[in-house]
Design a protein around this nucleic acid. Structure first.
Lengths: 232, 232
DNA sequence: CGCGTTATTATGTCTGCACATAATAAACTG
DNA sequence: CAGTTTATTATGTGCAGACATAATAACGCG
């Protein structure tokens, strides 16, 4: 015999093999945890760990009493890591640069205030900054910070550090929303990113909450050609 | 006392509370599992499950011997569910439509064959189809299928069913790559999606593998205004 | 026969214990 | 004192057993 199946990773690998080889077909019910544990010669908890992991990945459907079956339409779950832009740039071996374009403390215009669910005249900080990779424009950041939630931001050194990094270190948050889309480059983006006039740009919009209040709203507009990739 | 902390969910909730309240600051080391288990009055395995979960979510950094600390820059992990387009449309309450524009069995052009790591003269099936939502163009699908891997695709009824759904049911795969980006609409997209001439479109490129061979390569070009969203 | 009640079953989780493993700190040695 | 070896420590994992929970199947009764 080659190797016993005792670790949860090896159980997972064997189950995956049976799914990929269609030994267990989509929609089919697989043996229960106790039987698999007996077959593999390991504890039920070990099988449970493996199957739970695969269920979280969307490859199995599990229900109490009903048992475990191979997912019919494995919903592809693309897990995108969205790091701080500085790390994103440095991760590709390029040198990171940052330049604050403007910072102004004004009440947010109505549509921004509405999106951030704050009073129209509430104090807010508007930052526009450029991120560089090897001195070339990498992404344009347009950020609104809710000063009612993060008053300290008014005195933060945004000429030196990006809004994202300062907020991460200084403002707690509980959850957020992210949206990706494509837009035509507007004049400001064309100027800042030095891109040809009709350009399609990849943008990321993010809204960050602390409990029930919006901390910050940001739009990152990437230079032409940017792509977000992931494996699944 | 109100409630003991015995379930891994409640341990996780309490740890989350301490992180959000900054009782445990970013970068700070937190007590080890044994101590937390003693404090909460539960088993170490329970604490382990909670902390492991939070580490997977990117909120904690854990290293053997070094201990557990609150993540300094929690890498936001955006989990995007990429369903079958039909389900994506029907999920928004609209009626789904599908129209095959062209299907041709030809050797893939060099750049496509290279991307799919197949011989330049290997048989391939090229599908172009349009997905509709309430009769309006929703997304344009441009797909290459490797007939060496999925010979049955040559006879599949792609006038009725989309490549994605047929392949899901009939072709096994082990993993894939996904990339999102923004492109200027080309003449074909402008015609098919009925969009204004200079348009920025959101595109999804996907390469699907079975073990070491590429099953299919597809580009989905979404109609203007499309966004992918997620919470984190 | 229809319907509410009661087993039965598979997964979900907790416990206490043991040992494995990785990473660091301490001890040692030439 | 640099470099290597040896403890020490916190997390990672496995096991056996127990009970909890949800969902289904079987049963019983009017």
């Amino acid at each position: 015999m080659s190797g016993a199946i005792k670790s949860w990773q090896s159980v997972q690998a064997e189950v995956l093999r049976r799914i990929h080889s269609r030994e267990w077909k989509p929609g089919a019910q697989i043996p229960n945890e106790a039987d698999l544990a007996a077959e593999f010669g390991c504890a039920r908890a070990t099988v449970n760990r493996a199957l739970r992991n695969l269920a979280e990945a969307g490859l199995l459907d599990r229900r109490r009493k009903a048992g475990t079956r191979v997912a019919l339409q494995p919903v592809a779950k693309a897990v995108l890591d969205i790091p701080v832009i500085r790390l994103e740039v440095e991760g590709t071996g390029r040198r990171y640069g940052y330049r604050l374009i403007s910072a102004s403390q004004t009440p947010a215009p109505p549509e921004i205030a509405a999106a951030m669910t704050m009073a129209p005249d509430a104090p807010a900080l508007h930052l526009i900054a450029l991120h560089l990779a090897d001195r070339a424009p990498y992404a344009l950041e347009d950020r609104w910070i809710n000063l009612g939630v993060v008053p300290g931001a008014a005195e933060a050194p945004f000429t030196e550090i990006s809004g994202n990094e300062w907020l991460l270190a200084n403002a707690p948050y509980t959850h957020g929303e992210i949206a990706f889309s494509a837009v035509m480059a507007d004049p400001q983006a064309i100027a800042a990113l030095a891109c040809p006039d009709p350009s399609a740009l990849f943008v990321l919009d993010r809204l960050t909450w602390d409990q029930t209040r919006v901390v910050t709203k940001v739009r990152i507009t990437y230079a032409p050609g940017h792509a977000m990739t992931t494996v699944l």
